[in-house]
Design a protein around this nucleic acid. Structure first.
Length: 944
RNA sequence: GCGGAUGUGGCGUAAUCGGUAGCCGCGCUAGACUUAGGAUCUAGUGGUGAAAGCCGUGGGGGUUCGAGUCCCCCCAUCCGCACCA
């Protein structure tokens, strides 16, 4: 029989489906292994060859683990809510559910053709009400929880209410938006609304006015990782800052645990580093700088409020990582959004400050980022007091201080901070050195060209901390401010709370209604809150989100929330749902979770480093805290597949003509390179007729050829439609079959490396597959298998391959494994080996890579059961043992010749034979060797 | 600017511990079969040289009997972050 991949692949895909060969159930008799691909968004464009790269790798590993006796969970589904479908709905009026359904279907068709071993019974989509019910349920749990820092976990909000009833805020150590202080009595006296408002300060899902990334082009708010260079990732619309009332998740409460958890997971260093940077832990001190009265100089007198209640008096809380430099503070800077600005600005400065604040607030994020180096700011006219030195310092406003990091106010130390330095130089503010390499190496800051940001050195000009190191000085200052009651050592994180509201239609509705302006959760037994039908997918005329268009969008007469949840809501806990996807009583059963626990291997792109991979870790940790998930890290091992780049081809048009010159001759003309469809170019040779028909412009093109051919130029670029370098997996499956595509994708190189896709190379893998087929079939394409006992050499080839494949599978080195299959096939073909005892185990080895052809051969070998049920062959060391070893003999480290010695020979036995050898003599040329190094079974080196 | 990664033939890549640099493919060259070849098979293929040989893993230094691999300095490319106090 001839190798007919179309027939074979269709046949087995059908049988696997009918027999539900990949259906997975809990099986306590086997160890579990959970392999997951990152949740795909089914886009309208379908898959290109870059997408399945990770899927193929995870599929190979899943199949391998099954062969090794594991019960493997390998599911797939769709992250189906999202902006593209909704944008399309806005343009065309077509419901996003219809678009999504269509795209999902296309994705599924493409995936099915590649022969993946997913358990499709577990498939779900984030837009299924059966699934988003649990997204909403989790939101309610977050809403009803707060973070207790002493217990270091989430706790029910009812516990917090008990605490308030008993002792107010005394002894409370909870994550919050703002430090509050009230007694039990105060609490009890509050109205329900006031109490609800107070609780909002602590909830893990809370409602607050916040500065957001507003994208008017999309009509919604975006997360930080959805904005790049001030433009939306989807659509590329400009993004501005806007103050809006939003749902927010208190992710920051988990910052430390998110950081610590990275120690426990096997991710790449670079990915962990990206997360560490994103979390951005920095140790330092919080210090209150009191506002000064005018026209006095003693600071206790200057200070308008009383000493003890500094926290609540007119004072500015600042955060600094360099408390050791506090004697070098010469001014203070507030962010333009700082609430104290209107109160402290003096009448003379009012107009100027207001103008600056207005300008700064209205600037787009893009403008601000583009002009980071440009110094701007304004003096408020007010002074603060340095509480340690007692000096008055001017208070400035500048947008180099950010409102959402620290407290939006800083103590400026221009001598030791480059940004403060630039600001001081620009506005001519004093610069005072307080850190020097040593006590006698003080210099005049007026002569400096940059600040001294280094953390090594000693404190100078710093009163009681003079001579101390940066570290000691910092500690001393923290002790001092604690003693004075005006500060404390603390840790700040760059990680911000996640804004969770989107002003869009195509997302999960919030299970929330409003009573007296306060949000309340809809009872859990009434979930899901289903997405309503609306007439148009646009905001209302009054600017409300699309859900405001829904008829009767109320709960017991109270209005429901108009916002929907963001894209990351549904993808934050999906891996847990796969464990028990059809459960309508709970998110997932305890039993399923106890068995499957967490994802052992997660495969996907590095682009999710700061989005999905932070949010889902947060989500999982919360579910861990409330006793749902039994593991606090969701993804044990993670592999980032490298991007597949496109390989573009070019033709060169001579400027001003319709003449095209071949690549080798283009230097002689002035030319414009033009992208040409890679599908009409073969091995860089242009199909001229196809080119002429490709576009009307080229119909009467003329060519200047070299050696009778038109040679195209090429370049590695992003794979994109506009560059005509997109490769579609369907076309390749059609032309070569899924097994060849799977193997070629893996053969390209290490999985985590970015590499260009070059379709030319696929022929080599196709040839290999056909050669592999011919091991089982004679030259006349007749099935031909011998039952003869293999030779020792044949066994050696097999067992060498078993060993190599096992090692390579374990380390995800699939490219080298395929090379091993090729070597094995070449050796067996050379030996004309068609023996069952060799080919059967080889089939099993290769079935993880090429499931269709091996299943077909397996069945022809007479097996009734699927090859997917076969065990991984056992490696037998004894076939590797050799009596002789061929030593490379080098002179001064350069390999010159090879000599065979019995492996049992020692240095003493080898040396005399070696020195007598004629070739060795020739190389020695009469000289006596200084030293002879013999590493057993490795190398001989003669030093001359 | 900071952090991370990567540099090996014309191309994708390979090389457990420091031990034969270039495995496996693509492409290319020659040949066989063929009406034909973008099919198949065989042989060759890092550079240079007639050959012996010499030179070769981004560049420069070092350690070593021996360095693609370890150490120091530099260069290039890619990715991430970027007023984070």
């Amino acid at each position: 029989m001839e190798y007919n991949y179309r027939e074979i692949e269709a046949k087995w895909q059908k049988i696997w489906k009918e027999k539900q060969i990949y259906k997975t159930e809990i099986d306590e008799s086997k160890p579990k292994y959970y392999v997951l691909d990152m949740f795909p968004y089914p886009s309208g464009a379908g898959l290109h060859v870059g997408h399945p790269l990770g899927y193929i790798a995870s599929d190979i590993y899943s199949r391998y683990k099954r062969q090794k006796g594991f019960n493997v969970l390998h599911p797939m589904g769709y992250d189906a809510f999202g902006l593209p479908a909704e944008q399309y709905a806005i343009q065309t009026g077509q419901h996003p559910a219809i678009t999504t359904e269509k795209n999902v279907k296309r994705y599924r068709e493409q995936l099915d053709k590649i022969g993946f071993s997913y358990d499709w019974d577990r498939e779900f989509r984030t837009c299924d009400p059966d699934y988003y019910k649990w997204t909403q349920w989790t939101f309610i749990q977050l809403f009803n929880s707060y973070y207790d820092k002493d217990a270091d976990k989430a706790m029910p909000i009812s516990t917090l209410i008990e605490h308030f009833n008993a002792q107010g805020t005394d002894n409370l150590n909870a994550a919050c938006s703002e430090e509050l202080s009230f007694s039990a009595e105060d609490w009890q006296k509050m109205s329900e609304k006031e109490q609800q408002n107070t609780l909002m300060n602590y909830r893990l899902a809370y409602l607050a006015d916040t500065w957001v990334n507003w994208c008017s082009g999309l009509g919604t708010v975006l997360a930080n990782d959805e904005v790049v260079n001030g433009l939306s990732v989807r659509g590329g619309f400009p993004v501005e800052r806007k103050l809006m009332r939003q749902w927010i998740l208190r992710v920051s409460a988990y910052a430390e645990r998110l950081l610590q958890g990275l120690e426990k997971v096997e991710w790449t260093d670079s990915l962990k580093e990206i997360q560490r940077n994103w979390i951005g832990r920095s140790e330092g001190a919080a210090v209150w700088f009191p506002l000064a009265k005018q026209d006095t100089s003693d600071w206790k007198d200057l200070y308008m409020g009383n000493w003890d209640g500094l926290r609540n008096e007119p004072a500015f809380e600042i955060f600094t990582t360099r408390p050791d430099t506090i004697f070098g503070v010469t001014f203070m800077v507030l962010c333009p959004e700082h609430e104290m600005i209107p109160t402290i600005t003096t009448p003379e400065q009012k107009a100027e400050v207001e103008a600056y604040v207005t300008w700064a607030k209205n600037r787009s994020e893009r403008e601000r980022q583009a002009e980071v180096k440009k110094v701007s700011g304004v003096f408020t006219g007010a002074f603060a007091v340095n509480p340690i030195s007692g000096e008055p310092i001017p208070i400035w406003v500048s947008d180099y201080v950010l409102s959402d990091y620290g407290t939006g106010a800083i103590m400026a130390v221009p001598a030791h901070d480059s940004r403060d330095f630039a600001f001081a130089r620009h506005f001519n503010l004093p610069i005072r050195q307080v850190i020097a390499p040593s006590l006698d190496e003080v210099s005049d800051p007026a002569t400096w060209t940059e600040s001294m940001d280094s953390k090594s050195g000693v404190c100078v000009n710093s009163d009681f901390i003079n001579g101390m190191s940066v570290k000691e000085g910092g500690k001393a200052i923290i002790n001092k401010v604690v003693e004075m009651g005006i500060g404390y050592g603390t840790v700040n994180y760059r990680l911000r709370d996640a804004i969770f509201s989107r002003q869009r239609y195509w997302g999960e509705p919030f299970p929330i209604y409003y009573k007296d302006g306060m949000p309340y959760a809809i009872p859990e037994n009434e979930l899901p809150v289903e997405l309503p039908e609306i007439d148009k997918f646009q905001p209302t005329e009054t600017g409300e989100p699309p859900l405001a268009r829904a008829k009767d969008w109320t709960y017991n007469g109270y209005p429901k929330e108009y916002n929907t949840m963001p894209g990351f809501a549904g993808s934050s806990g999906y891996y847990l749902r796969y464990m028990d996807p059809h459960n309508d009583k709970e998110y997932f059963s305890k039993e399923a979770n106890q068995y499957w626990r967490n994802v052992d291997l997660y495969v996907g792109g590095a682009e999710h480093a700061t989005g999905h991979l932070i949010y889902s870790r947060f989500w999982n940790k919360f579910l861990f805290d409330i006793g749902l998930s039994c593991e606090d890290e969701p993804f044990k091992k993670l592999i980032n597949q490298g991007m597949i780049q496109g390989r573009s081809n070019f033709v060169y048009r001579i400027v001003g003509t319709n003449q095209y010159v071949s690549n080798g001759l283009k230097g002689q003309y002035e030319v414009t390179p033009i992208h040409v469809d890679v599908n009409i170019v073969h091995n860089d040779i242009l199909d001229i007729e196809a080119f002429k028909q490709w576009m009307p412009d080229f119909a009467d093109a003329e060519f200047i050829l070299e050696n009778g051919q038109y040679v195209c130029g090429w370049e590695v670029e992003k794979m994109s439609k506009s560059k005509y370098n997109v490769q579609n997996p369907d076309d390749l499956v059609e032309k070569y079959g899924a097994d060849t595509l799977r193997m070629y994708e893996m053969f390209l190189g290490p999985i985590e490396m970015a590499k260009p896709w070059d379709t030319n190379g696929i022929e080599g893998v196709f040839r290999f597959i056909k050669k592999f087929w011919r091991l089982f079939n004679s030259q006349n394409n007749e099935w031909s298998i011998s039952e003869e006992e293999p030779t020792r050499e044949e066994y050696k080839t097999l067992h060498k391959t078993i060993k190599k494949i096992e090692e390579d599978n374990e380390k995800f080195s699939f490219n080298t494994a395929i090379s091993a299959f090729m070597i094995c096939t070449n050796e067996l073909a050379d030996a004309k080996c068609n023996k069952r005892k060799i080919l059967e185990p080889l089939c099993i080895l290769m079935s993880a890579y090429a499931p269709h052809i091996t299943e077909e051969l397996w069945s022809q070998l007479g097996h009734a059961d699927s090859i997917t049920k076969a065990d991984f062959p056992k490696y037998d060391e004894s076939y590797m043992q050799e009596t002789d070893f061929i030593y490379p003999v080098s002179f001064n480290g350069k390999m010159r010749l090879k000599l065979s010695f019995p492996v049992s020979y020692t240095q003493k036995e080898i040396e005399p034979i070696l020195l007598e050898n004629a070739d060795v003599q020739k190389w020695l040329a009469g000289a006596a060797p200084k030293k002879i190094i013999i590493v057993p079974k490795r190398i001989i080196n003669i030093v001359m």
